[in-house]
Amino acid sequence: MSFSRRAFLGAAGLSALGLTGKAAIDAFALQPPHEPASTPAGTRWAMVIDPKKCLEAGDCTACLDACHRTHNVPAIDNRAHEVKWIWKESFEHAFPSLQTDYPPDALRDKPVMVLCNHCDNPPCVRVCPTQATWKRSDGIVMMDWHRCIGCRYCVAACPYGSRSFNWSDPRPSIAQITPDFPTRSKGVVEKCTFCEERIARDEPPACVAACHAKALVFGNLNDPESDVRSLLRSHFTLRRKPELGTRPAIYYIV
């Protein structure tokens, strides 16, 4: 029985503690967070994906392998319970409003890489009852797996299917655990965090670093000289379901 003594005491004790618990935890903050965040102010992280370059690489799965290995994402065979941060989705399903009966051969039944869109106006953040998911000042839609209660409201709210729930303990489904990143426990939602832990070390996201075809480009949208901005200047790009007003930060070159 994994309903441990601690959990039981926690549940029983919290009801007694009520709101004073939060005050007690807050009051403890030994040192206020005075340090500047590792990301300079005014940064807005974004990604530009070039599906053509990706397709030229054939059956390459370098980005998703790197991502899932770095973040201990379990490999679950059963589609009903799978967990994924970045994956291949057919063009028709990724862009349902762009359906045409005569798609170009380059796109017909072809996959595109999809991941969390790190929306400017994220519905998942709006609905979360505990602020376990929120938008950082640099645009990353972040997750706090310590706080998630597993209500899956964010999963229902995300129009991109970018959120996965841990239906069971993921550890048995992780072939090789990467020790410097946590796994997740059963009962919480997870998704791509734009590799915020790597960005903090001035490294690009793992998927970007792993892509040999340079099909994934990451950068600061607010910097006119950034790679992403120069790609957006020189190419026509799409975002997924723009009509929903979520303003994704993932752009696709067509």
Partner: peptide
């Protein structure tokens, strides 16, 4: 707990 909230929620990684 302080470290946890610093890192996860405030993006402050040094204590």
């Amino acid at each position: 707990l302080t470290w946890r909230d610093d890192v996860v929620r405030r993006n402050v990684r040094t204590w």
